[in-house]
């Protein structure tokens, strides 16, 4: 998957990963992919909810070694 922008949210706790994700999406264009890496296990559900609420599609979620990687497609 082609990633247009990356956000390192490691070490951040609720609600920072979501707030930073929202900020990162602001200057992106429709259809671009944002990759977010987080260590907050709560962000798995929160990112899905963020996607539901804002319409930015959560293309995929990966988990490895306590790190969560999200790919969001900007609306």
């Amino acid at each position: 998957m082609q990633v247009d922008k990356e956000l390192d949210a490691r070490g951040m706790n609720c609600p920072l990963p979501i707030l930073k994700t929202k900020k990162s999406l602001t200057d992106m264009t429709s259809g671009q992919i944002l990759k977010v890496i987080s260590t907050d296990c709560g962000s798995v559900k929160d990112m899905q909810a963020f996607s539901n609420q804002t319409g930015n599609e959560l293309v995929s979620t990966e988990e490895a070694g306590g790190e969560y990687t999200f790919f969001l497609k900007k609306k």
């Binding site: 609720c14 609600p15 979501i18 707030l19 994700t21 929202k22 963020f50 609420q53 804002t54």
Partner: peptide
């Protein structure tokens, strides 16, 4: 502050 900032992020 948590709820307000998050809600704002959700639009």
């Amino acid at each position: 502050f948590i709820l307000a900032s998050t809600a704002a992020a959700l639009g």
